[in-house]
Write a protein that binds this DNA or RNA. Structure first.
Lengths: 247, 247
DNA sequence: GATGAAATTCTTATCGC
DNA sequence: GCGATAAGAATTTCATC
């Protein structure tokens, strides 16, 4: 009954962790070379076996009406931890609960509130359950990602984008590693812009090559393994990144 | 541009946080009494506005091949926190990163590893980024939930199930609050079983009423607001819970 | 695990307020 | 700009091999 996961299961998990809503069974099926029905069966099995426990949208509650996200780090007696964890989950505002194996702060409760008063209400609800709040912090940002080892193993494919900063307005700066076979590799910046390979709104502002940093000019050629810094006034979108990515 | 969310947006967010994959636009549309197309447009807007940031499957990695989930609580200089957070995200195995506003442990990194060696590799990767690991703990369990205040406001509808414990095998024990209008309310246990209202595999083992605990017999009648403890050898499924829930 | 028909849902374009 | 509507494409469901 305790079947191990095969390649199909792993790829399904990877795909659904990455995007649970907009990935269809046929899409995954093509990647793994089986029929869509098989993907569907496997997904149902993974759900039945309790491996896939749910699909949840991630929400930026700060943008969604100026709400606060707070992390309560709590102490619950080990013998009751599972029970109080379950009761904490249903407190209105609580969106995530982590039970930790050891330590004094063995219960992390993530909660969203309209304001600090609302968070106090949640704190009181936790206390009422016999949970001791050891520390609490506002959460600035949270991101969730797929489990890379379950992803496609096309070689050593490192992530292309190594850094990423949003500036005022829609402008963004991204640092990307140029892959072999990337559309922009081997041609000059001037030509890249002229031929539309590089977006008009994007500007290569630095090139890191062999541990030294070059200042790019029109005649500068981008090479594989260069780490280029790209500024884009309208935001660095997926299409721009593709320019630096191999096929 | 900074429009506040209306009831439609809130209900969409609630629905997608609860189940991002198996909820269709028409389903939500019916709940809110608008056309499916509108729901679709709103979802696209919420994504564009950066309020919905993604849809992720939740995976129980312990069941998925005996992997370990570990939480690294780290310290990153505030000035570099955003940058290192972004770099930490792409370390293979890292599935979640929380940036916290204040405190010494202002970066929580959740990572999955095949074994402790694998986790050490991830820890080393974090250190290489200049992140100081202050503490680390194995995660036993994690659950994610919808944001209740965005849910349907049909009265004060408290959660029916207040506690839930899995026993050996498939057996489970659940503690549920009986709602007004529930199928089982007002009839004796014996009759409930006879008429199929209560599952054959389910057994009411305790009734908490007015702060005292009753021992149930065949002639005992379940009343609204009773907190009943149900044991089921095959697992307490949604159908069983419905027995205690109002229409 | 694959196949095929039927129901549902999603995409897209178009119209009206 | 926002929501409703309708046609065609794609996906999911279900039974069957």
């Amino acid at each position: 009954m305790e079947h191990r996961l095969d390649e199909i299961d792993r790829r399904i998990i990877h795909a659904l962790m990455d995007d649970a809503r907009n990935v269809s069974a046929p899409t995954i099926a093509e990647d793994v070379s089986v029929s869509p029905g098989t993907i569907r069966n496997r997904i149902a099995q993974l759900e039945d076996r309790g491996i896939i426990t749910g699909y949840h949208a991630s929400i930026d509650f700060e943008r969604a009406g100026d709400r606060l996200t707070n992390l309560f780090m709590c102490n619950a007696p080990v013998s009751e931890r599972e029970t109080v964890a379950r009761r904490a989950q249903v407190i209105p505002g609580v969106t995530n609960v982590r039970e930790l194996m050891t330590g004094r702060r063995n219960l992390h409760v993530l909660a969203v509130g309209e304001d600090t008063d609302d968070l106090r209400r949640i704190a009181r609800s936790l206390s009422d359950l016999g949970i001791e709040i050891e520390d609490e912090v506002l959460v600035q940002n949270e991101t969730t990602h797929s489990y890379a080892p379950f992803g496609p193993n096309d070689g050593e494919r490192a992530e292309t984008v190594t850094d990423f900063i949003s500036l005022s307005g829609d402008a963004e700066v991204a640092e990307v590693t140029v892959e072999r076979g990337a559309p922009i590799a081997g041609i000059s910046l001037e030509r890249a812009v002229r031929e539309g390979v590089l977006d008009d709104d994007s500007l290569v502002i630095a090139i890191e090559r062999d541990d030294s940093v070059l200042t790019p000019h029109g005649s500068t050629e981008i090479q594989p393994d260069d780490i280029v810094t790209v500024f884009s006034r309208g935001g660095v979108d997926e299409e721009t990144i593709e320019t630096f990515r191999g096929e």
